[in-house]
Design a protein around this nucleic acid. Structure first.
Lengths: 103, 103
DNA sequence: CCTTTGTTTCAAGAATATTTGAAACGTACA
DNA sequence: TGTACGTTTCAAATATTCTTGAAACAAAGG
C-alpha cells in the first residue's frame, strides 16, 4: 500500500457510519450481510447505506457478491491488514512502541 | 480508544498533507521539527501547514512545545499505537489474518 | 408480462473541510 | 522600544462530502 492508497483507506474509515459498517461486517463473519441488513444495523436509509458501502468498496475494504435479489457484502481483512502494515512499517518505520501494541 | 476517537484519528490521517507531516515527524525522530520546517517539508504555506498541524494535534497524533521563537512538533507514537490496537482488537476483533500483518 | 422485493443511481441541497492572504501574536535581540 | 522572525488566527472564497427523496435497475415469482 502506498501513501495515496493509505489516504483513501483512512478516508473511507473516517466516518461513523462507515466504521460501524465495517464492524458489523467483521462481526457477521464469512456469511457477510446484505445491503438491507447493513442499512438496518447502522440505522441508515437504503440510499445512504449504499453511498457509504460504495466508498468502502472503492477503498477495497468491503466486497460484494449478488445472491439472488440480495447483494451480500463482506469485509476484506486483507485490506485492513495492509493498512495496519502500512501504519506500522511505512508510516511509523517499524517503531517498537507501535509494534508493541499488536502483542 | 473508542469508535468516536477512532473516527477522529482516521479523519486526521485522511489527507495527503497530514499523512506527509506525520511521516516527516516520524523520520525526524525525538528532536521533532519546527512548524516552518514542516511547512517546507510538505510544500505548504505556513498557514496551511498550521491548519493541518492543528487537526493532527486535536487528534492527539502530534504534540508541540515552544523552543524560543519556534514551535517544535513531535509525533505521538502512543496515539498511533492506540489506533493500530483499535484496528486489530476492536475493529477486527483480533482477526488472525490482520494480526499476521504485524509480524 | 406484471408486481414485489432489494438495491443502486441521480440531482439537488445542506453541511464540512480546505485554501488563501492579511492581520495579529509571541519571542528575541539590538 | 523598535524591528525581525516564526507562527497562528481569522474571514472569505472554494472545494468536497454527505444526506435526501425520487427514479431507475435487477432478480424472482405469480
Amino acid at each position: 500500500m502506498n501513501e495515496t492508497a493509505a489516504v483513501e483507506t483512512f478516508q473511507a474509515l473516517a466516518h461513523g457510519d462507515r466504521l460501524a459498517v465495517v464492524r458489523a461486517l467483521v462481526q457477521a463473519g464469512p456469511d457477510g450481510l446484505s445491503a438491507g441488513e447493513i442499512a438496518t444495523a447502522v440505522e441508515a436509509s437504503p440510499s445512504r447505506a449504499s453511498f457509504h458501502l460504495s466508498v468502502l468498496a472503492e477503498a477495497g475494504l468491503v466486497a460484494s457478491e449478488r445472491q439472488a435479489r440480495r447483494l451480500i457484502y463482506r469485509v476484506q481483512f486483507e485490506r485492513l491488514g495492509a493498512l495496519v502494515s502500512y501504519l506500522i512499517e511505512d508510516c511509523c518505520r517499524g517503531s517498537e512502541q507501535v509494534r508493541a501494541c499488536c502483542r
